[in-house]
Amino acid sequence: MMVGTQCLVAFRDSSGEIHAYTSPVSSYATLLTEGPLSFNVPRIKAEYSNNEFIIFATLQLPAGRTSFNQVWQNGAVVAGNILTAHAQSGDNLKSFGSVDFANGL
């Protein structure tokens, strides 16, 4: 996890309920606790299907910006209702790119 990252998070807790929320990363010791991002996310929810989480969110992007860097990480371990760190290897090191919300790329 990189300091300064802004996250859309989804996980299934120990009772089986799916949680989706936003989380800013302010240190390398983050627990991905819920908190606001630098842009508004008025709606966020998630579904779990075919061993994957799908996050649906409405983002209010900063004025004049449509292109952003994106990263996904897979942290399979949940201790109670707290996410634990993801692996620092494999697909987690290859999971980056960019997205432009104006043209869908």
Score class of each variant (00 low, 15 high):
residue 71 V to A: 14
residue 19 H to E: 04
residue 82 I to K: 10
residue 31 L to A: 14
residue 31 L to H: 13
residue 55 I to T: 04
residue 12 R to N: 00
residue 100 D to S: 10
residue 104 G to E: 01
residue 41 V to I: 09
residue 39 F to M: 12
residue 20 A to H: 09
residue 6 Q to Y: 03
residue 82 I to H: 05
residue 48 Y to T: 03
residue 93 L to Y: 06
residue 88 Q to C: 14
residue 98 S to L: 01
residue 13 D to G: 09
residue 8 L to F: 08
residue 42 P to F: 01
residue 6 Q to T: 03
residue 46 A to S: 09
residue 4 G to M: 03
residue 47 E to N: 11
residue 81 N to G: 14
residue 85 A to V: 03
residue 71 V to M: 13
residue 78 V to G: 14
residue 36 P to W: 00
residue 93 L to V: 05
residue 25 V to A: 14
residue 23 S to T: 00
residue 77 V to M: 11
residue 11 F to P: 15
residue 71 V to P: 05
residue 7 C to G: 06
residue 26 S to E: 08
residue 45 K to A: 12
residue 89 S to N: 11
residue 46 A to W: 00
residue 33 T to D: 11
residue 53 F to L: 08
residue 30 T to R: 07
residue 13 D to Y: 09
residue 82 I to L: 08
residue 52 E to G: 13
residue 49 S to M: 08
residue 76 A to V: 12
residue 54 I to C: 07
residue 19 H to N: 14
residue 51 N to V: 01
residue 93 L to N: 14
residue 52 E to F: 04
residue 95 S to T: 07
residue 71 V to C: 11
residue 38 S to K: 08
residue 26 S to C: 13
residue 89 S to F: 10
residue 48 Y to V: 13
residue 27 S to D: 09
residue 39 F to I: 00
residue 94 K to A: 10
residue 100 D to K: 08
residue 14 S to M: 09
residue 1 M to P: 15
residue 32 L to E: 02
residue 66 T to E: 02
residue 95 S to E: 02
residue 90 G to C: 08
residue 72 W to T: 12
residue 27 S to I: 05
residue 63 A to R: 14
